[in-house]
């Protein structure tokens, strides 16, 4: 199944990755080849087969809700590309 450059552009927008037009073309061809390969799964009759949700059928893992120490604000902000007053700083999202 051929994926068009337009479809790749749509997915790139969902994935929030910028591509140049020159990059899109080979990506479309590669994605098409991979999707052609995975189409072999269509050969199987999967009627009545449950999808695997967890490989060992584990169920919810509960623990007590206890206060525990954490690395703290400074440590957690230390890798921030931009910070101000104990917050991550980003560009304005809502236009006024």
């Amino acid at each position: 199944m051929a994926i068009t450059p337009e479809e790749v552009r749509r997915v790139a927008n969902l994935a929030r990755i910028a591509f140049t037009d020159q990059e899109l073309e080979p990506f479309a061809a590669q994605l098409s080849a991979i999707l052609d390969y995975v189409r072999q799964l269509d050969d199987l009759d999967l009627g009545g087969v449950e999808p695997t949700a967890h490989v060992h059928d584990a169920v919810n893992a509960f623990r007590e809700d206890e206060v525990r120490p954490s690395p703290g604000q400074d440590a957690m902000l230390a890798n921030a590309p931009d910070r101000e007053d104990g917050c991550f700083r980003v560009q304005k999202v809502i236009e006024t």
Partner: peptide, 22 residues
């Protein structure tokens, strides 16, 4: 590009995401 790792600034936040990840 917000909490840690590379940030490449774009014209708005969505553009920053796209350029950072590109």
């Amino acid at each position: 590009g917000v909490k840690y790792g590379l940030r490449v600034a774009g014209r708005d936040l969505a553009d920053t995401y796209r350029k950072t990840r590109a």
